[in-house]
Design a protein around this nucleic acid. Structure first.
Lengths: 131, 131
DNA sequence: TACCTGTTATACTATATATATAACAGGTAA
DNA sequence: TTACCTGTTATATATATAGTATAACAGGTA
């Protein structure tokens, strides 16, 4: 699991970290129960402060992606991430709406937009897993 | 064109303003060449500072949604918003990727995700325009 | 005992957001 | 000309967020 940060980006470091870990879970590179580096070692590896890593971990914990055991360390949620529930969909819609509004302004057809989503979705599921 | 702000939201006021104006354009409630309120009057109507409105206007101008004439005022870009070009798609993908990664973690199928997009897209185009 | 966890506390810097006032420059209308 | 409307610029202030730096604490393990 490689993590690359863009320190010049407007996106805060801790959210970059969150996104990369979530993407790692989506790609199955990070599996349920798998251990993550300690806040200190990850911070050292990335050349950032341990509080920045901690902030990302805390938020991932609150959203159910990881579990934090005070003395054992951090692991990907062994029970898997909570499935989409009734609170998830409005939040997703709120994030999608500005993107879709701009797309319409720029004369992007619905099909072109859906295809863009589809291609990204496929990046995470390169092939369906053999059972 | 009604504008509603949530002053308690984590989303900055000026981005809320930008999004609502972009949505207004997408819904054709705001048409090319149409005038927008002056920074002072809109700020007064919304009960916010004129600099906050100005910041939203400046950014909308830079992204090509509106034109600002120093003494005439602000209008929706009469030439329409610039169509999606080769710089647009990577930017869209960068914004979609975290949403799609989380959706996959929450076991949202591709079809369910695409359908959510489709429904929002349809909100902006309630019916195809008669020519 | 030494070392590893996460956690908490404090302090500091820098930047972003939002407000408040004031003034400036150019155009328009009474 | 005068008054008023534009957007623009300049200062100043308050608050919150982001990030870093150090230090210490508490619990578990080798």
């Amino acid at each position: 699991m490689f993590i690359t940060l863009d320190l010049e980006s407007e996106e805060p470091i801790y959210t970059q970290l969150m996104h990369q870990i979530i993407e790692g879970i989506a790609k199955k590179e990070l599996k349920p129960g798998e251990a993550l580096p300690s806040v200190r070692s990850l911070a050292a590896d990335l050349g950032i402060n341990l509080h920045t890593v901690n902030k990302a971990y805390q938020q991932l914990k609150q959203e159910g992606f990881i579990l934090i055991h005070r003395q054992k360390g951090v692991v990907i949620n062994p029970d898997g991430v909570a499935k989409a529930d009734e609170t998830y969909w409005p939040q997703l819609a709120a994030k999608l709406r500005p993107l879709i509004a701009e797309a319409i302004c720029r004369e992007v057809s619905m099909n072109d937009f859906l295809q863009a989503c589809q291609e990204i979705y496929s990046e995470f599921n390169p092939r369906s897993e053999p059972k």
